[in-house]
């Protein structure tokens, strides 16, 4: 079976791996790169559990052929924290009990990051629509939405205080 040599940047590191040409980015990340934080919930782009950032866009890894990421930049849940410091979204999910089983959590965090990077001050409705591609069956979304709004507020506050300093 032919395999393709792929070069890309994953979580800040230049990475290369061999992938089945017909294989998905999801399978490549899990099986070839070993990033098991990317989850498969459906394999058809309906649940968002495999969401990653591809050149800063939220993307279902199950819908991307692995060779499509040649030269691109991928961020997975394993790359969200900054070394020994959690991303504010991660901290707010923990403090706000925004997860129950946790299988959808990586996808939600990345989808929320994609939103806040573009729109640091979203309304509740904007958060709900930005996260509508990610399914959660445990929480009813309430605490997820609150956590994202809290994180947005925290990020804005620290940006403001950073500006002042």
């Amino acid at each position: 079976m032919s395999r393709t040599h792929i070069n890309c940047t994953i979580n800040g590191d230049e990475t290369d791996f061999l992938s089945e040409s017909g294989g998905s980015l999801l399978n490549a990340l899990r099986d070839d790169v070993g990033l098991m934080g990317v989850k498969e919930g459906c394999g058809t782009g309906d649940c968002g559990a495999c969401s990653v950032l591809m050149d800063d866009r939220i993307t279902c890894a199950c819908l991307i052929f692995a060779p499509e990421v040649e030269g691109r930049t991928i961020v997975t849940i394993e790359g969200l924290a900054n070394a020994d410091e959690l991303h504010p979204l991660q901290q707010c999910f923990l403090e706000g009990a925004a997860l129950q089983c946790g299988i959808c959590t990586p996808g939600f965090l990345l989808a929320a990051k994609a939103l806040l990077d573009k729109n640091p001050d979203p309304t509740e409705t904007e958060v709900r629509y930005a996260l509508a591609g990610n399914l959660c069956r445990c929480t009813g979304y309430d605490k997820i939405i609150r956590a994202v709004l809290d994180a947005a507020e925290g990020i804005r506050a620290s940006a403001t205080s950073g500006d002042a300093a």
Partner: peptide, 15 residues
């Protein structure tokens, strides 16, 4: 499939 068996998404619900 989750496309055809539609469970609630965030934009379907209020707090």
């Amino acid at each position: 499939s989750f496309l055809d068996y539609r469970i609630p998404v965030a934009s379907d619900l209020p707090m």
